[in-house]
C-alpha cells in the first residue's frame, strides 16, 4: 500500500491528505460533543451512555476502522510529502527565507508531529485500556468495562497532565488553523466570494474546537 502511495503524483497525495484531514476535523466535532458530557454534574451518566453507544453501535464501529485508517494515512502521507520537500532543496540557503507568508503554514509537520505524540499518550490513557493492553488506573465499572469518566477525572485532576493537555490543544489549534483553508485550496475549491468565508470559518473552528476541549481539564482543575 505504501509503495503505491509513493507512486501517486504530488497532487494526488495532497488531495488525499486534504480529504482525510477534513474527515478528521468532522470527527473532532463528534469527539468534543462526547467530551462535553463530562461537564454535566451527573456522575458521568451522560458520558457513560455516549461512550457505551460509541463502543457498541455497528455504524460507529465501522467508522472507527475508517477513522484509524484516516489517521494512519494522513500521517504516512504527511511524512512522505515532507521528506520529498526536504530532499528537493539539498543545499540550503545561508540566509533563511524572509518572504512574507502565513506564519503557521511553515510548521505543519512539526505541529503534526506533536499531535502524533499526544495521540499516542491519549491512546495509552483510553483506547489501549479499552483493548486491555494497558491497566486502568481507576476501578472498572460493574460490567467490567473501563470507567472512562473516572479515568478522565483522574487525569484532569493532575495539574501537570491538564496543563500539558491544554498546551497540546494550542498546538492542535495552530495545526487546524492552516489546515482547513489549505485543504480547500488543495481540492481546488477557491473562489473570490467564498474563500474569505472559508478562512473565517477556519479561524473560528481552529479556536473553538481546541478551546472546547480545553474547558474540560480547566473545569476539573478548578472544581476538583
Amino acid at each position: 500500500m505504501t509503495v503505491s502511495f509513493l507512486q501517486f503524483s504530488s497532487i494526488t497525495k495532497k488531495i488525499w491528505m486534504a480529504l482525510l484531514g477534513l474527515f478528521l476535523m468532522v470527527f473532532l466535532v463528534v469527539h468534543l460533543g462526547i467530551n462535553l458530557c463530562l461537564l454535566r454534574a451527573d456522575d458521568g451518566q451522560w458520558f457513560h451512555e455516549a461512550a457505551h453507544f460509541m463502543g457498541t453501535n455497528y455504524v460507529v464501529k465501522i467508522f472507527e476502522v475508517v477513522l484509524f485508517a484516516g489517521f494512519i494515512f494522513h500521517i504516512i502521507l504527511g511524512i512522505i510529502l515532507q521528506l520529498k520537500n526536504w530532499l528537493s532543496r539539498p543545499v540550503r540557503y545561508r540566509i533563511s527565507n524572509r518572504s512574507v507568508t502565513p506564519f503557521l503554514s511553515k510548521y505543519m509537520i512539526y505541529t503534526g508531529g506533536i499531535i502524533l505524540i499526544f495521540l499516542i499518550i491519549h491512546f495509552m490513557n483510553f483506547y489501549f485500556i479499552k483493548l486491555g493492553w494497558v491497566k486502568s488506573p481507576v476501578p472498572l465499572l460493574e460490567g467490567g468495562e473501563p470507567d472512562f469518566y473516572q479515568g478522565a477525572r483522574w487525569l484532569f485532576e493532575q495539574p501537570f497532565y491538564s496543563i500539558l493537555y491544554i498546551v497540546l490543544m494550542a498546538v492542535l489549534a495552530f495545526h487546524l488553523n492552516h489546515a482547513f483553508g489549505a485543504a480547500f485550496q488543495t481540492l481546488g475549491l477557491e473562489h473570490n466570494s467564498y474563500t474569505p468565508w472559508i478562512k473565517g470559518f477556519s479561524t473560528a473552528y481552529s479556536i473553538l474546537i481546541p478551546l472546547g476541549f480545553s474547558i474540560i481539564p480547566l473545569y476539573f482543575l478548578i472544581f476538583s
Binding site: N85, S99, T101, S105
Partner: peptide, 13 residues
C-alpha cells in the same frame, strides 16, 4: 524533483 506545495504562498509573495 520539485517539492510539494504546502500552501505557504511564498511563491505568490
Amino acid at each position: 524533483g520539485f517539492g510539494n506545495c504546502t500552501n505557504t504562498y511564498a511563491c505568490e509573495a
